[in-house]
């Protein structure tokens, strides 16, 4: 299964959702934000190298060790340089994601903001997507535009993740975006886990956000 995590607007929590849903699915999270990557990174080949045909995609996946330190989720990180982003062939992402899916199982793709091809190509490769938004009046219209793109590219919207919601307008968002909504409340455990480069499922398994991410994972399986 290839699942794209999209949203349109930046800063709504796509990377946090991607990392945690990948953990819940016991899958691989792919940082497909070629220009502004932010998932945990470490030494070794990355997605820029894969898309420039300098490395094999399977070699670029950082497998979680099961030890107490290091990532709790298998991660395909992305390089951080503009030169790497420019050298990358964005269309090669499609085959790379298919290969990770064949080799590892569920693939969760952290997509960039916007509506350019780097957001469209993961949707093209994916069977379905999660639409991430915050409840504000800027993010929801962007999510609506992204939903239209997902429809064109045949990636069904599995679920809307209403992130950092205090008093969530669940019915209104459900009506607007036409998919079931899962609310992930603002929580200090999420910030703490992100600072430590961990999923909140690993860092604070009893927290409400961790419980919600596990619910999303169960709904996807």
């Amino acid at each position: 299964m290839i699942l794209a995590v999209v949203g349109g607007k930046g800063g709504v929590g796509k990377s946090t959702v991607s990392l945690n849903v990948a953990d819940a699915l016991d899958g691989v999270v792919v940082d497909a934000d070629l220009g502004m990557a932010d998932l945990p990174y470490g030494p070794g080949p990355d997605l820029h190298d894969v898309l420039a045909d300098r490395a094999d995609v399977i070699e670029a996946v950082r497998e979680c060790s099961g030890a107490d330190t290091g990532p709790e989720v298998d991660v395909l990180p992305c390089g951080r340089t503009l030169a790497g982003a420019r050298a990358a062939d964005p269309t090669a992402l499609v085959r790379a994601l298919e290969r990770v899916d064949e080799h590892y199982g569920p693939v969760v793709v952290d997509c960039p903001a916007g509506m350019a091809a780097d957001a469209g190509l993961p949707l093209y490769a994916a069977e379905s997507c999660l639409l991430v938004t915050t409840p504000d009046g800027v993010a929801v219209p962007d999510a609506l535009r992204t939903r239209a793109l997902a429809r064109v590219l045949d990636a069904g919207v599995e679920r809307v993740v209403l992130n950092r919601a205090r008093d969530p307008p669940v019915e209104r968002v459900e009506r607007t975006l036409g998919a079931p909504v899962t609310v992930v409340p603002e929580h200090e455990a999420v910030d703490r886990a992100r600072t430590d480069g961990l999923s909140v499922i690993a860092a604070a398994p009893e927290s409400v956000p961790a419980e919600r991410f596990r619910e999303i994972g169960a709904a996807l399986q």
Partner: peptide
């Protein structure tokens, strides 16, 4: 029945411009 190239052509190449790269 689009291809990956169709998606790239219609949505636009996300690569940073040459002048932005050192």
């Amino acid at each position: 029945d689009p291809t990956a190239d169709d998606v790239l052509r219609v949505l636009g190449d996300p690569s940073p411009p040459r002048d932005a790269v050192a």
